[in-house]
Design a protein around this nucleic acid. Structure first.
Lengths: 143, 143
DNA sequence: CAGTATCCTACGTGATACTG
DNA sequence: CAGTATCACGTAGGATACTG
């Protein structure tokens, strides 16, 4: 399916994958930490990590201080942050915890919550969902 | 798992679901159109649509002009647009089609491409991935 | 056209045991 | 600790036939 969303989901649409990446953004790097955080079985975790390394989303760093390998987000991996933020904000808004926000995504320096992620025009105006359309480009037209 | 990302994925993490929603954003409303667009089997499509209606993401409208039911995005559904945009932009950037962009997401009026989705601080500064952290809120602390 | 019901298969997942 | 190998299970998915 020639669609960037479908292509993206081919990789990160697998179960567990986005949760692994969520933890990676939280700073988790070691196999065992992922495993205990997620409660995922070891073989599946290994498969997912390998896949993410193959796709260039994580980088396996073998020569670490402790002698144990670590998994680091690459630039391609870091570029997924908006996806996770969008998911988190949607989840907080429409499936809230009764006691309030589970997490605040804040600016590291000021500790101020960031804005809700929203589409903006080139000149910086926020766009409502009906002000947006998608139009075919060369990648679709020339098959 | 008490995490807004995990909660969100519980619903929209199922295979096909985000592709169904992508088509819904493209304006697809009828069962048959979804089916032919996606090449999904009818029973699975029916299950997914029902789930999305149950979750308040789609609304089933039975009294239409043609007499056939339609599925419309609700506010909760429209709120997922940033997720899809983030996925699409990531896919276009890191898994590009050799002939160029498959789609441009543009402002409806001007036909100008929108900006890349990015986290911004309250006062509107763009934030790099390392300038962002997430801190626990009441929904986590009080279990 | 818009589903539902049934069957069958394949794959994803977890549990466990094993290795370096 | 960081995996790999194997097995056993459940379920998601497609195909097909049927219904209003």
């Amino acid at each position: 399916m020639n669609c960037s969303i479908a292509q993206a989901l081919e990789i990160i649409g697998e179960r567990w994958t986005l949760l692994i990446l969520r933890d990676a953004f939280y700073g988790v790097k070691k196999f065992g930490r992922f495993q205990e955080q997620l409660g995922i079985s070891r073989n599946v975790l290994a498969a997912r990590l390998n896949r993410l390394v193959d796709e260039g989303i994580l980088e396996k760093v073998s020569k670490t201080a402790g002698g144990h390998p670590e998994y680091h987000l690459t630039a391609k991996g870091h570029a997924l942050q908006p996806v996770l933020i969008a998911l988190a904000q949607w989840g907080e808004e429409y499936m809230p915890h009764p006691k309030g926000q589970r997490f605040y995504i804040v600016e590291a320096n000021t500790r101020e919550p960031i804005r809700r992620l929203e589409p903006v025009s080139q000149d910086g105006r926020a766009l409502k969902h009906h002000e947006i359309v998608s139009v075919p480009g060369p990648g679709i037209l020339h098959n």
